[in-house]
Computed example of a mutant assay.
Amino acid sequence: MKVIFFHDGPIKKDEDNNYYGTAHNDDTFKRYYQIADELGVVIREVSVSKSEAEQKLSKITVSPFEVVACPNISSLKGILLKEKKAKEIIYKEIEKCDYVVARIPSMIGFIAIDYAIKLKKPYLVEVVTCPWDAFWNHSIKGKIVAPFMYKKTKDLVRNAEHVLYVTNEFLQKRYPTKGKSVNCSNVALKKFDNSTLENRIKKITNMNKDRRVIIGTTAAVDIRFKGQQYVIEALGKLKSQGYNNFEYHLVGGGDQKYLKNVAEKNGVTDRVKFLGSVQHNDVFKWLDGIDIYVQPSRQEGLPRALIEAMSKGLPAFGARTAGIPELLEKEFVFSNSKNNLREICNILTSFDKETMLSQAKRNYEESKKYDSSLIEERRRNFFRLFKESY
């Protein structure tokens, strides 16, 4: 029996035909062997050198594992020039598989669902983010596309018989289904050690008022809806008010030009550090070294990076986007409005030692809800229900 996973991706491939990913990795893919003993993936491929991949990405080693490259149809140009070819590939793969898993919003996922219905193949839908937020906050072109993506997602999810959501409430309310559903975050934390919290408490207790407070974010630095620019602008505002103790560290790949320009414009180039891509295992070491984590994005599902930061006992704050407010206390959530800079500044200046200690303890305990054993048990039960329905 074979299950095929459909998503825009991308996944990365080196010159020796090895595959690598960040969001798409062994932990992601091994779940689907609970549905069938063979796994295929229809996804967009991007080339990467082996040396770069081994330094910065997670190698995919699950087996049996087959990747079928699909053209990029996530842009208007791609749809016009490559949609026919993509549809041929997707149709052919669905014809020969037993089960379909479509992660949406994605153009490849949308087409896969349409063909699974046409060919009467069992399909499961994973809803991982809000397309309205993703496209509306992306660009002028995104605002044109947003209504179509919103309606398409709403219609497909409503009529699907099995839907997995990554949030506890947000996506369920915006994209409800008439079928069976479960909430299973893509975040699955494997190890909790109380010494992590003890070390964080010791670090906060030993902070002196003259030391720089390091804020951190992990996200691509060339996608504007990730929101790092708002934190940088807030640092400029705080500097003008006499607060010079904050430093912002950014982990993530991509072109740094835009954010560097924002830092220069706001006079904080010496307070913004770009660390580039970091392997996932090394991100946890980096989290140990920072003081506050921020998730400023205007498009999310339930952010893995924020939950991982909370599991390290980090005080945190974030935007009122998708599942972020499900994770944080309301005092540490800022709006996606013209007032957001003032709100970010107020939150940052509210982090005295007592507040940081209470938030460290609270966030560590909250992150335990994402223990892999709890989440994977829910996922296994839902996958079993999916299989037994056909």
Rank of each mutant, 00 (worst) to 15 (best):
V213N: 05
E169G: 10
G236T: 09
K361L: 04
A36Q: 07
D371L: 06
V145T: 11
A319T: 06
L374R: 12
E198I: 00
S75L: 10
K141A: 13
A360Y: 01
M107T: 13
S337P: 13
S75W: 06
I113M: 05
Y390F: 15
F284M: 12
N208V: 06
K191L: 13
I375F: 01
N137Q: 09
L314Y: 00
R380S: 15
K121E: 10
D114H: 09
R384P: 09
L306F: 06
S350K: 10
D193E: 15
W132Q: 11
E354R: 09
Y175D: 03
I307W: 00
A86T: 06
T196K: 12
K84E: 14
H138N: 12
C97V: 04
E126Y: 03
V231Y: 00
V127N: 09
K178P: 01
V3F: 11
S139V: 11
K191G: 10
E198C: 06
V157E: 07
G142M: 04
K77S: 15
D155A: 11
G21A: 10
I223K: 08
G323N: 05
P315Q: 00
M1S: 15
V100E: 03
D291L: 10
H162K: 13
N340T: 03
K151W: 11
K312H: 13
R200M: 08
D282I: 01
H249W: 14
N346P: 07
Y165L: 04
K13T: 01
Q299S: 15
H249R: 13
E15D: 13
G40P: 01
F5R: 05
R174F: 03
Y364R: 02
F148N: 06
I375S: 02
D37I: 00
P131L: 04
F351E: 03
D255H: 08
G253P: 08
A146V: 03
E326N: 09
F332Y: 15
K82P: 00
D26I: 07
L124I: 01
I60Y: 00
D193A: 10
E264H: 11
N266A: 02
V213W: 04
I4E: 02
N159M: 04
S311I: 07
G253Y: 02
S58Y: 01
